[in-house]
Design a protein around this nucleic acid. Structure first.
Length: 455
RNA sequence: GGCAGAUUACCCGAGUGGCCAAAGGGGGCUGACUGUAAAUCAGCUGGCAUUGCCUUCACUGGUUCGAAUCCAGUAUCUGCCA
């Protein structure tokens, strides 16, 4: 990273020539994943972790990679130029939010998500599956060490978090959403979600899934998982149909999403089911023939306890095809990143860097701290000593502390740039450590310092 | 000069005999945040110690078993009348 970086994307992302007209080719072959180095454990045995390169119509992604979240076609408070300058390789938006806001058709008309938001590099869209949970039960996705606190058993499947209203209701065919913006009812089905995502035009899309919580019973987890399996097939079929119908557009990859909560048998079954799914795709040569095509990659999502994260990712890595990328949805804490990469996750997205930035917290090698604290009032150092981000190059803790106290919006921008850079750089360092064989040294050093007990 | 009304913790403000260390805001302090219903939420905010004790509702003095609350005086402020 350099300071005063011009408003252009990194070299590896400029192959498409910016947000110009779409390339003519439209084939599943426009999306590839090549495994690079494999991680070896301290015992000399191979691990699931690896480096790789994802190639999309809008550029490549070196993995492992952190993909910053731009839910509504915007990384909150940060310009895309700044995201490129801090090393972001791709951005992830949300189909549900974009469908409610500008409307997916508008983005199609505008030339797709990337062009609409002035991000020439690769893009992802989430399916709206997360909103099945967040607008449904409202419970947190990752439960703390104390485990579920809501009533368990029969009634738990209808439980709603305290103070929340149920705004999503699931049935076999799909989900009714009640808009959190104006109360309008909206219908999402696998076909609707994939249709919206095709209109949004991201390089990588996710299948529409049902995210359960740890409050749900085992019986409900099985029921939901089966439903998600059936939805996955419908997503793949609709994806094949639309890929054919929208020939001439850049190919959009579709990732299936693995659920199954903390249950090993359910996770393994989900992986096997989705890995084996096929649908007929048109080939890219214009010959009119079709080819059998499965998911281009896989998302690992759902309810899990932090302590089981690595184990669950490991189960998935064992069951899923080696030659397809594995995206871990919604994770970015440093310990979780190391654990997940070690066990086979290739890419990550998470709202945490910008969310905690907006609420005053910043990451450092020594842990996360709250900048509104009175102790920073006269601290004229950078947010993090030695950080190479734009914020740390130009601004002090005291100044940003002042901006937060004065409720100046640019505080969110400066904080978010730092936190995004911190997370992107951490995953970049993890990638480099796999290449040069120092993963475990890096893990011990980084986590030992980040989570060291404080006074 | 006369009449009427005010004065509550850092600020604004509720409280008109005991359930009041005193509602509610703001501010301050601390913490949380993992596919964004999140520029949000939670706790604390007179002092000291473990339940508990001590000092507070402009000031002084009363009434009462008991006063932020009732009475008298004083100070300051705000209206209206000269």
């Amino acid at each position: 990273m350099t300071r005063d970086t011009p408003a252009v994307l990194p070299a590896q992302n400029t192959s498409s020539g910016g947000a110009g007209p779409a390339p003519a080719a439209a084939s599943p072959r426009d999306f590839t994943f090549a495994v690079g180095h494999r991680l070896t454990g301290p015992d000399g045995e191979p691990r699931h972790g690896r480096t790789g390169t994802i190639t999309t119509p809008h550029g490549t992604i070196q993995t492992p990679a952190f993909i910053p979240v731009a839910t509504q076609a915007s990384v909150k408070a940060v310009l895309p130029e700044a995201m490129a300058a801090l090393g972001g390789q791709a951005l992830l938006a949300n189909a549900y939010h974009l469908y409610l806001q500008p409307g997916a058709g508008l983005l199609d008309e505008a030339g797709g998500l990337g062009r609409f938001m002035n991000w020439p590099g690769p893009t992802f869209t989430d399916s709206g599956g997360f909103q099945v949970m967040s607008l449904g039960s409202g419970f947190k996705k990752v439960i703390d060490m104390n485990g579920p606190t809501a009533p368990s058993g029969q009634g738990a499947d209808d439980a709603v978090a305290p103070g929340k209203e149920r705004l999503a209701n699931v049935d076999e065919d799909g989900v009714w959403f009640k808009s959190h913006l104006n109360g309008d009812r909206h219908r999402f089905t696998p076909e609707v979600s994939v249709g919206i995502q095709h209109q949004l035009g991201a390089d990588i899309m996710f299948a529409f899934d049902e995210l359960t919580t740890l409050h749900n019973s085992r019986g409900y987890q099985e029921e939901a998982l089966e439903r998600t399996r059936r939805w996955a097939q419908r997503c793949l079929d609709e994806h094949a149909r639309l890929t054919s119908e929208r020939a001439g557009k850049p190919y959009q990859a579709l990732f299936g999403v693995i659920q199954g909560a903390q249950f090993e048998d359910l996770r393994r079954k989900a992986c096997g089911d989705l890995a084996g799914m096929r649908s007929d795709f048109p080939d890219g040569g214009g010959s009119g023939t079709a080819l059998e095509h499965g998911f281009d990659g896989y998302g690992i999502g759902g309810a899990l306890e932090k302590e089981n994260l690595g184990t669950i990712v490991g189960w998935c890595a064992e069951e899923l095809p080696e030659d397809r990328p594995r995206h871990l949805l919604g994770i970015s804490e440093p310990d979780d990143l190391f654990t997940s990469v070690e066990n086979g996750a290739d890419t990550f997205d998470c709202v945490s860097p910008t969310r905690v930035a907006r609420t005053g917290a910043f990451y450092t090698a020594d842990g996360r701290f709250n900048l509104p604290g009175a102790r920073y009032k006269r601290d004229f150092g950078a947010l993090e000593d030695g950080c190479d981000c734009y914020t740390c190059a130009h601004y002090t803790r005291a100044y940003i502390h002042h901006l937060i106290k004065a409720k100046e919006m640019v505080a969110h921008t400066l904080m978010s740039i730092h936190n995004e850079r911190f997370t992107v750089r951490l995953v970049d360092r993890i990638r480099a450590s796999i290449v040069d064989g120092t993963f475990y040294e890096l893990k011990d050093e980084v986590l030992g310092r980040y989570y060291a007990p404080r006074d």
